[in-house]
Design a protein around this nucleic acid. Structure first.
Lengths: 161, 161
DNA sequence: CAAAATAAGTCAACATGTCTGACCTTAAAT
DNA sequence: ATTTAAGGTCAGACATGTTGACTTATTTTG
């Protein structure tokens, strides 16, 4: 048919493809978080607690301000969940050696156990998806996901070593 | 080296790779929603309103129970955001023709305009990521994301036509 | 050394989103 | 005529996030 029609078709396909991507993000994220959310509810915790436990586990000894930089929430928002986690013995703080203003965060044994339970669920979900999709698809997934991230510093976290 | 050591290395690589996937989902979703969240705040709306506007726009004339099935939240949770959107003239409802108990939802002109603004931001973000990653990567992204989704009915939404 | 900057913590008030539970209305199906 | 389904509503609770203002301890800088 005419160039006009095929141009319109291309635009339609493009719009449909992009909307599917929006929905993939919605459905995948919804299902990715729902089982951990149920586990967290057993402790009276929410997704915010999970994020704190996850990143403290991932970067043991990180400071409060580093954590704020990752989560991109306010100090007051973090304060509530972090103090609950400390009070209830999932996280400990110690002063930094060179800079004693800094509070370096670490998981306790109890925190490590909870982190393992939560992330094991998510790792298995990813592992299954990766296995079914194959190595080439995994590389494509990574490239697209990194492209969706705005912050250049955050993108750097995913450079291949 | 020994089989033991290379086995441990493989496990380590696997764990690292799976943790990176967890973080990709966190960072990508965080950045994917942050600009629309700012736009929504201009209207006093939140992400829940966005999801309702998005899916009503996508499936014009869908019913409340179909929407609940997509969002997987309770009727009471939906009620608050949906009634705000109807009161403020972003969405209209009409009774179903064959089953008059059903309330079929549609965007108004005003709703279409807001939907377009919100999803345009997300479509452009995806379009950039897709363009930079290339067609093969896009296919891999889709396969992995579909694999992360639990619900078989939701996976079906993404079958190639 | 004194002043400024930084890291962290705290208090208060508020908006939003979600939940459970109970109950009601209307319409369709048996 | 009764039961079931779709939808609406009220009340109460909790989790997560925000802004703003202020404090303390410590380090850096002029």
């Amino acid at each position: 048919m005419s160039d006009l029609k095929s141009g319109a078709n291309l635009l339609f396909l493009r719009e449909e493809e992009l909307r599917q991507a929006i929905e993939l993000l919605f459905f995948a994220y919804r299902d990715f978080t729902s089982e951990p959310d149920e586990m967290l509810a057993e402790y009276g915790f929410g997704r915010a607690h999970h994020r704190v436990i996850y990143f403290v586990g991932r970067h043991a000894g990180l400071s409060v301000s580093e954590l704020l930089g990752i989560l991109k929430i306010t100090k007051q928002s973090l304060s509530r969940v972090l103090s609950q986690l400390i009070e209830q013995g999932f996280i400990t703080q110690r002063a930094g050696e060179t800079d004693r203003r800094r509070r370096l965060l670490e998981l306790t044994e109890k925190g490590i156990e909870l982190e393992r339970r939560l992330s094991e669920n998510q790792r298995q979900r990813i592992a299954r998806a990766y296995r079914e999709a194959g190595a080439a698809a995994v590389e494509g997934f990574r490239r697209v996901m990194i492209g969706i991230i705005s912050d250049e510093a955050d993108r750097k976290r995913f450079e291949r070593r």
